[in-house]
């Protein structure tokens, strides 16, 4: 039976996952009121709610593990850009609907098998969070995946936009699959799953949907990473400014 993970490593990994969810959820929420049709205007904020809700549970758990009196809000609103450890993929700008759905799809295709592993892992709190998140993210894969097929195998323009989105975003996907020291320690403790099978499932999901969508999986010459160590893209500062505006302007404001 696996031993329990070093608390510092566990906190680092929980915050990484929380940051991924908060930032992707915030990006999606930018679409609220701007979607191409009413159903999408419901879908994207609904998915954003799932992601932000998952991040709340994760931040609360990190705060509890840390035991320094911080709350989920302190994690979400009162850290500086270099303290966020989300992967770069989730902070990339929405650009257009093709970019947005592809980003969602890449992320969900990773998180779905990841949560399935965590659900059967050795950490009781994470097992509970994973049990909910796995079902929610299942909807995200299906929803985004259907759009990728519709757009990739759609008109000349929609196919071109999907291809542009793949060129722009595929270089950011390797960071999802990266295993740093903290993750290694959590894998050893059985808290999170081994990366090999997750990577294989991710590849299979992408390949399957891209084939249906008549899109190609590109070769990446220069994979982009840095988010896990706090080195973000320029766009991140603008995102954080908007995300943190209310807490910075009215410190301690409660909803």
């Amino acid at each position: 039976m696996a031993t329990s993970a070093n608390t510092e490593d566990l906190i680092r990994v929980v915050v990484q996952i929380a940051d991924d969810h908060l930032i992707l959820g915030h990006r999606l929420s930018e679409w609220c009121g701007h979607a191409p049709m009413l159903e999408e205007d419901l879908s994207m904020p609904n998915m954003a709610l799932d992601l932000v809700g998952q991040s709340r549970a994760l931040y609360s758990y990190a705060a509890q593990l840390e035991n320094k009196g911080r709350s989920e809000d302190d994690f979400a609103y009162l850290r500086k850009d270099r303290e966020y450890t989300n992967c770069l993929l989730v902070e990339r700008p929405n650009t257009d609907f093709a970019h947005t759905m592809l980003k969602q799809f890449y992320f969900a295709a990773f998180m779905h098998p990841f949560w399935q592993g965590v659900k059967n892992g050795s950490d009781e709190t994470l097992r509970g969070i994973a049990g909910k998140a796995e079902k929610e993210i299942g909807y995200h894969i299906r929803h985004a995946g259907e759009w990728i097929v519709r757009l990739g195998d759609g008109t000349d323009e929609s196919a071109e936009r999907m291809a542009d989105a793949i060129d722009a975003l595929h270089p950011y996907t390797s960071e999802l699959l990266e295993v740093d020291d903290a993750r290694q320690s959590c894998i050893a403790a059985g808290v999170i799953p081994e990366i090999g099978p997750i990577q294989a499932q991710w590849n299979a999901t992408i390949h399957n949907v891209f084939t249906q969508a008549k899109l190609n999986v590109p070769e990446v010459d220069f994979p982009q990473q840095g988010g896990r160590t706090g080195h973000h893209t320029e766009d991140f500062g603008f995102l954080l400014t908007e995300l943190q505006y209310m807490q910075r302007t009215y410190p301690g404001a409660q909803w």
Binding site: L49, D50, G53, R56, I129, K132, E136
Partner: peptide
């Protein structure tokens, strides 16, 4: 228990 992680009604 929450129904959905992001259920706004939970609070």
């Amino acid at each position: 228990s929450p129904t959905y992680s992001g259920c706004p009604a939970l609070d």
